[in-house]
């Protein structure tokens, strides 16, 4: 319980700090917005099956925009060496992982809704009737995304060129998650059945496997 308590304190700090810094989340919201607009010009989506092609496109944007924010989640702790202060203040470094994980998950959730809103409003994607199943899918996908994104951010935060390396390490690992996300989002938009889909099983497996693995590996990622 001590772990959870410390994690929530870190989470609270993250929210307050990000609300003041603004740079990371504004960058990724703006990136999503401009991507939606540019996609309108680059792809002719009239007559396309929006629930299928649209969902892949949506996740491509989330993949890129999300890493703008999550990549920074530990890099910013290097500015004043605060990461060491965090390590010294908690008896279990897992609390830092969990706190940052929750903050990234909260951000990814808000980014997801922002993009759903934009794609519904600007690209006429069929999102309005499927909000509940979409929220379900997004939460599961973001849970998996946040585990790897958080751990790898911590892993690379001290590297030179970590801003460049981060997406290169993260994206290939997210391939199965991305495919499940696109497939399930398409199904949800087309009002198809989600439960029983093999993709859902894959997604849940990914979430559990990488949450546990990242929690265990975080200690090694954090220490020198």
């Amino acid at each position: 319980m001590r772990l959870l308590r410390s994690a929530l304190i870190v989470f609270g700090k993250e929210i307050r700090e990000e609300a003041r810094r603004k740079e990371s989340f504004l960058a990724s919201f703006f990136f999503s917005f401009i991507s939606i607009v540019l996609f309108h010009f680059s792809l002719d989506l009239t007559g396309a099956d929006l629930s299928r092609e649209g969902s892949g496109l949506l996740w491509l944007i989330i993949l890129f925009a999300g890493s703008l924010f999550t990549g920074n989640s530990f890099r910013k702790e290097e500015e004043n060496g605060t990461f060491q202060a965090l390590l010294l203040a908690v008896s279990d470094s897992g609390a830092i992982f969990l706190g940052k994980y929750l903050a990234n998950l909260a951000f990814m959730t808000s980014l997801g809704f922002f993009l759903l809103f934009l794609s519904g409003a600007l690209l006429n994607m069929p999102v309005w009737n499927a909000l509940l199943p979409l929220a379900f899918v997004f939460t599961l996908v973001n849970a998996g995304y946040s585990s790897l994104a958080t751990m790898i951010s911590a892993l690379l935060s001290k590297e030179k060129g970590s801003a460049l390396l981060y997406p290169l390490v993260l994206y290939p690992l997210l391939v199965p998650l991305f495919m499940a996300a696109a497939a399930l989002t398409g199904t949800a938009m087309a009002s198809g059945p989600l439960l029983g889909s093999p993709w859902l099983r894959l997604l849940v497996l990914f979430d559990i496997l990488f949450f546990v693995a990242c929690m265990l590996l975080f200690e090694y990622a954090a220490e020198e």
Partner: peptide, 29 residues
Amino acid sequence: RTRLGYLSHQLFLYNHLSAEENLEFFAAL
């Protein structure tokens, strides 16, 4: 680790939190 204090040339402070908030955060942790 929680029983020792470490200070280096780095400040270990969050620039975007106030002086009091910095102390509150670490006190809570």
